[in-house]
Amino acid sequence: MSERAVGHDGMSGRAVGHGARWVRTAHAEWTKLRTLHSTWWFLAALVLTMVAVSALTTGTLRAGDCAALRTCEEDTVKLSLTGVWVAQAVALLFGALAVSSEYGTGTIRTTLTAIPSRWRMLAAKAVVVGGLVAAAAAVGVFGSLYAGRELVLAAGFTPAAGYPAIGLGDGPTLRAAAGSFLYVVLVALLGLGLGTALRDTAGALTAGFLLLYGFPLVAALLTDPDWVEAAQRIAPASAGLSVLATRNLDALPIGPWAGLGVAAAWAGALLVVGWGVLRGRDV
């Protein structure tokens, strides 16, 4: 083999450490996503939809709508983060496509010949998808809150009227900011789990949208209020988005962190199902 002058990077090709293998796998998955234009469009769309929808909604706020500002109990922080409700769709799409497009194009077979450990492949994908969405979500949440702060003040919800300016120094506001950031990341992972389990873009998106937006609709059709509340407690979106609330927490069907926990449980469970399918089936 005269021409075999290639990179075994100093180490014997067969004695690669466990940690190094993880780093390489994550690097490969990162390169894979980085080299698709669509990745950057998705992340830009995530930021833009979150900030734009938040700002448009908050922009409709008028102090005059409240009879008395002090008793109106307007949750200005939650209102400023309305965009999360739309941006989660982009996160779902991005997460699902990160794996379902591999099945669509057949690259999953190339991926698994390069990375035979399916567990390592899926975990690396989750880290890279989660990291990219986290970066975009952080920008979106900050942008939404910043826009909200200005718009809320302009609408007359001033500190003098009992509404301190929105700022992360406030405990509940920080919780809502961190919570919505985490929620968007969890939805992306939920999408990844669905894509891995269903191996099909259309199927994963249908299931994902039903789960996020259909579940609350079903809940609305239920007549018994106890059932409605139970449905809101277990649905990933309505439970997860309770983390946005900063006022009037008693009226929520589930506490903010507990609600986020429900969303995390959905994402985790779907990833586990996805891994089960990936581990056991031929590709």
Binding site: V6, G7, D9, A20, R24, T25, H27, A28, E29, W30, T31, K32, T35, T110, A114, I115
Partner: peptide, 10 residues
């Protein structure tokens, strides 16, 4: 490139 990165091939 991504295949190379999965094995740290230069």
């Amino acid at each position: 490139l991504w295949l190379a990165h999965s094995h740290r091939i230069p």
